[in-house]
């Protein structure tokens, strides 16, 4: 049962990591990186590191996404309906 849980977690993590690289708009990429952090936090719980999981979920998924989102808004790249990639 634990193997299936681990397999699902690893597949979710890698899929979200691919989404960070491939999703065209930056807001979606930030959301995907936050999802990667959440799955990594669950994996830390499975690996019996509950304190690290707590910190990863609070800091990696919450604070990091907030910093990146505010940075994107400050950079003027907050576009939700952008179809093409890398609109620098």
């Amino acid at each position: 049962m634990t193997e299936w849980l681990a397999l699902i977690l690893v597949v979710m993590m890698l899929a979200a990591a691919l989404a960070v690289v491939l999703v065209p708009n930056l807001v979606g990429a930030i959301a995907a990186s936050s999802a990667v952090s959440l799955v990594v936090a669950v994996i830390f719980v499975v690996l019996r590191a509950p304190d690290v999981a707590m910190t990863e979920a609070a800091v990696g998924a919450g604070l990091s996404a907030a910093v990146l989102g505010l940075g994107v808004r400050r950079l003027g790249l907050w576009k939700l309906n952008e179809g093409k990639k890398d609109d620098a």
Partner: peptide, 13 residues
């Protein structure tokens, strides 16, 4: 990736 913000996101990964 060419966009520097995406480079930062991949660094986090």
């Amino acid at each position: 990736s060419r966009h520097l913000f995406r480079v930062l996101l991949c660094l986090g990964l």
